Amino acid sequence: MLSYQHLYHAGNPADVHKHAILAWMLRRASEKPKPLSYIETHAGRALYDLSAAEALKTGEAAAGVGRMLADFAPDHPFREAVEAARTEAGATAYPGSPWIAAHCLRPEDQIHLAELHPREHAALRQSMRGKAKVHLSDGFDLAQSLTPPDPRRGLLLIDPSYEIKTDYDTIPRFIRQVHRAWNVGIIALWYPILKDGRHRDMIRTIEAADLPKTVKSEVTFPPVREGHGMVGSGMIVINAPFGLDDEAAALSRMFARL
């Protein structure tokens, strides 16, 4: 449970997909003047150095942000976040979802980040520098304890590593529980698309729950290295903001060109 370190995978095609959707949703949500809450269950370290040995060992970022960033319009919030991170931290920086949230949101918004890995948690606190409430906590427990949050408008990102195989079985129930407590919240789940298709039952169960305004975005891409089992990325969003269907379709066209 505590072995996963995202630095090996930061900036890969799945990150591009996930972070582009997240940045778009946060930009859209922050257009309204009322404050909002952002909660993330598995935050990681927030800011990654793609020149680090761990990132270079896999080379996954070259197939993701290195290849795809220029495909985004200059004013797309994902591209803006990456460029802002590089202005602040250097040309090889890559922002994780907590950094993107802090970049897209406003001082009056609340950000709660859960990270259980001690080293990742320490790096997360350093990266956020008071921009968020950082919790050394199980992310599922934190989300349940905070919902409904104050402010009540907002977004929950569920982004586990899926090292715990039972996540595929427990996440649909967790989403239903959170939605019952926080029926106006945007709930976004990221999941890997693997060659064995293990995500399919989980997504069918979520779709069968008849949750409101559900949008699913799935993209596929070539394996980033020989023997790599991930061949795509998925996001399913409950209470999806208006226009997310169009954004998801644009991302699908972009990934189809890979």
Results as ranks from 00 to 15, higher is better:
H135M: 00
M128Q: 09
Y191P: 03
Q144W: 08
R106G: 12
A14L: 03
I111H: 12
L124P: 02
A89N: 14
E115Q: 03
R86I: 01
V224C: 06
W24M: 12
W182D: 02
R198P: 04
L157C: 06
H17I: 12
I39V: 10
S217G: 15
H135N: 05
L50H: 02
P192G: 12
A101L: 09
H112V: 05
D75I: 02
T58R: 06
H42F: 04
R125I: 05
I203C: 02
V134F: 00
L7I: 14
R79F: 01
Q5H: 15
A89R: 12
T170P: 02
I100V: 15
F255M: 01
K57N: 10
H103Y: 15
R204I: 04
K195H: 10
T147K: 07
L36G: 12
P241E: 09
A248Q: 05
L142G: 05
S127I: 03
A70F: 00
R257T: 07
A248F: 03
V224I: 06
G96I: 01
A240Y: 01
E247Q: 07
G185A: 15
A23H: 06
K34A: 10
H19K: 13
A188I: 06
A70I: 00
K34I: 13
P107S: 11
V237W: 06
K131L: 14
V184D: 15
R200P: 00
E31Y: 14
A81D: 10
K131Y: 09
S30F: 01
T92L: 09
A181P: 00
A122V: 00
W99Y: 14
A46T: 07
A132W: 01
M25A: 13
P172F: 08
C104E: 14
S30Q: 13
P13W: 03
A250T: 03
H76M: 11
R79K: 13
K216G: 08
Y8H: 04
A85V: 00
H121W: 08
G197E: 14
N239H: 06
E54C: 04
A85G: 07
A93E: 12
H179F: 12
P149I: 01
S145Q: 13
H199M: 10
H228C: 04
L146C: 05
A101I: 03
E60P: 02
G234S: 10
L113E: 00
E247L: 03
Y48A: 07
A250K: 13
R28E: 11
D196T: 11
A102T: 14
L258N: 04
V237H: 00
P212L: 10
Y191L: 05
A81W: 04
N12G: 09
S252I: 09
A209N: 13
A81Y: 02
G234H: 04
L26M: 08
D71L: 15
S161K: 06
T170G: 03
M230I: 01
W190M: 04
